[in-house]
Design a protein around this nucleic acid. Structure first.
Lengths: 162, 162
DNA sequence: GCGGAATATCTGACTGCTCAGATATCGTTG
DNA sequence: CAACGATATCTGAGCAGTCAGATATTCCGC
């Protein structure tokens, strides 16, 4: 490890680092493909799907754009434009916020809630069939633990990165 | 499980499916943040970084744009434009391909190879410090196995999805 | 209650991708 | 070897994001 690093391979260092790198690449690509599946089968982008889920979780009283942008990998400007499109599709509606007239409240429409359910069914079916079912039954508890541990590691690491 | 599904939460179904979903989200966001770190500290986009790695792995004789696009989540048109920019930055160069005059060969320049090493060092350092080191020493072998298993699952699932 | 900093949203300019179609070359088949 | 389909790359048009700055409103200290 005290050697001078001169090629990318050497810089990659030990096995665990390599494993993380390959693994993140695989997970990323998988997420991408899952997103494309939703786009093709449900007619909404994966970002729209995420917003639908966030709004569904939040319940009926609506949510500010700011709050949405904080949950997403999307700037406030991006949220404005995304909500514009979702509103045009009839998935959400903007209402005045009497408590703070700077902002507006975004709410799911009936159609939006229905679409969230439909897209989730597609998404879950994909995960179940292609990721969960291939795992031998006896190993599934292990996997669940692995996944939770890894999710936690990832979440903890994000704020420290840069 | 035989019940009618009417909300997104119900559609999400069992714990393992939920764990996969959350986990993919976390991994995705992590990859995003790692990519941004490379952009800020090395001055190249994460896609440029990936292309640098691919070319470094391929060795000195160069690679067709088509081959690059097959390795990436990028269409051939996107590769053309990405290589345009990388060429302008002096990271790669295009050479005529005597064996097939439809295409051209893309090769790393000296500067490109150096940048690949530098960016990899940043990337690896981030992974090591923020992902590997927080894992207790006694658990690292476990993690390496978990990661490889998960990478394999993900890779196997991708072609079946849609 | 007034003035200024903070906050929520929107918008213009720009970037970087995709898609579809144009162009050039290759390879095969009769 | 001529013709035709396949393949590699490039390009115009369009779309969806970022960033920075404009506007409207709120909050806070005096």
């Amino acid at each position: 490890m005290g050697e001078e690093i001169t090629t990318a391979e050497e810089a990659a260092g030990n096995d665990l680092v390599l494993a993380f790198g390959r693994f993140l690449g695989a997970a990323n690509r998988l997420e991408y493909v899952l997103g494309r599946a939703i786009e093709e089968r449900c007619g909404i982008s994966h970002l729209m799907y995420e917003v639908l889920l966030i709004l569904a979780r939040e319940g009926g009283q609506g949510m500010s754009m700011r709050a949405i942008s904080r949950e997403q990998v999307l700037t406030t400007g991006g949220v404005t434009r995304l909500i514009d499109r979702m509103e045009a599709l009839g998935l959400v509606e903007r209402a005045a916020n009497p408590a703070d007239r700077r902002g507006r409240l975004v709410r799911l429409t009936e159609a939006g809630a229905a679409r969230a359910v439909e897209a989730t069914r597609v998404h879950v079916e994909n995960i179940r069939r292609h990721l969960v079912e291939p795992i031998p039954v006896g190993h599934r508890e292990w996997f669940a633990e692995d996944l939770q541990r890894l999710s936690r590691s990832a979440r903890d690491a994000i704020p420290r990165l840069r």
